[in-house]
Design a protein around this nucleic acid. Structure first.
Lengths: 223, 223
DNA sequence: TCAAGCGGATTGTCTGACATTCTTTCAATC
DNA sequence: GATTGAAAGAATGTCAGACAATCCGCTTGA
């Protein structure tokens, strides 16, 4: 008998599947920010019962991806510019710290994965797939955060990036930003690879600030 | 007719009430960390139905106050020392930043409230009510975070403090720590009142580090 | 002593139901 | 014609009950 190794896969429940499906649907822009999520419709579309759906919705509400107003029901969170700004400020705080720590802690194996993910983003940046850009970029950050030595920072950062994604779907799709984003990310990677903490922090800060500026600009030109 | 002013109180639902009750019960130590929460029992105790309870449990799980394992059900989160350490590191990052910003932004009215809350903590520190100490201390931080100009920092910090509270109930009850905690908080208050950002950040950092050290010591002596 | 198996307890999920609340439409009044 | 009011329809909040799948502890047998 093969050893167990505690690798037993946790059974996936309907509610977990539902949370994942809905989250993905929100990120993909299938549900517009502000649009209402009608329980009965979702039940039919997902083929599940209302209690299961409602549990999934509570989870998403706790992640701040949707908002549930009593007697009005759930709707996709609509961020104000002020909130976006606050999220970016918080993200800067966490990400700079994580990048700095990562530059001192990362293992060769993880560094290699980071390089690979950078390549994946490069490919996505040249393509026209907006979702792929977001996914590969998120992967890049995820690797860094997973190697900063602090799982809580990682967890919080994941939540923030998710909430920003509510917004980014459209703005990130402009090519110009993807190109400069790539350059900044490469700079971060180089600093981490060199173990230069100060440079890593600096590059990270620049990256977040530029990302915020890009979003701001995209908002002003679109609206 | 008086103008509406958007002051309409949101109706409180059973699930929200339940979340609050359970959260408080967990903080009060009614449920030990690690202990299982049996749905049928809670339904009877709270006088609610199982679907409502399960929705509430999903919310608490998202807050990381409980943990739900498929086919085993919910149990109160049990933090490892490593997690506690990570939470304190994250808290330091956020709290120092918030205190620094607060020192530049706070209004006279808020400053007065801060002073009052400091007085409340002083009173609690002299008493033997461990829960009161945690509550009044949390109020002190809450006021600062509410005046740092960034609602996201506030939100994240609230979550972190809540999770630490899972632990603190017993350790914070030693008088010595409450006294020195009071001195440190007063130092923070003075720096904020003086608008001295640098001193505020420094005092805040010291406070968080001392708090962590106190927890660590309490753990080592208890276990 | 240890392994297999059995049974109770617990969770995951569904169906159906009903009161309450919101939204929208339509009609009546100014 | 515009505004107010009411009523119909839709959606949510909440409950009760049910059943299969799973887990846990205990007994039994080797």
């Amino acid at each position: 008998m093969p050893p167990d190794l505690n690798l037993r896969v946790l059974p996936r429940t309907v509610q977990q599947e539902t949370v994942d499906k809905l989250r993905l649907a929100i990120f993909s822009g299938i549900f517009e920010p502000g649009s209402r999520l009608v329980e009965s419709q979702l039940c039919v579309q997902l083929g599940i019962s209302r209690p299961s759906l409602r549990e999934a919705l509570r989870s998403l509400a706790a992640e701040k991806l949707i908002e549930i107003i009593p007697n009005r029901g759930p709707s996709v969170t609509q961020l104000t510019w002020d909130e976006v700004n606050s999220i970016y400020e918080a993200r800067e705080l966490l990400e700079v710290e994580a990048v700095g720590r990562c530059s001192q802690l990362i293992t060769p194996a993880a560094l290699e994965k980071l390089e690979l993910s950078l390549g994946a983003f490069e490919e996505a940046a040249s393509s026209n797939d907006g979702l792929a850009r977001i996914t590969t970029a998120a992967e890049f950050y995820a690797i860094i955060l997973a190697n900063c030595g602090n799982p809580i920072l990682e967890e919080i950062h994941r939540g923030l990036v998710a909430r920003i994604s509510l917004f980014r779907s459209r703005s990130m799709s402009r090519e110009g930003r993807a190109k400069s984003s790539l350059a900044e990310m490469r700079e971060i990677y180089e600093a981490i690879a060199a173990g230069d903490e100060k440079a890593a922090r600096k590059a990270s800060k620049k990256h977040v600030l530029n990302a915020k500026a890009a979003i701001e600009q995209a908002l002003n030109t679109t609206n």
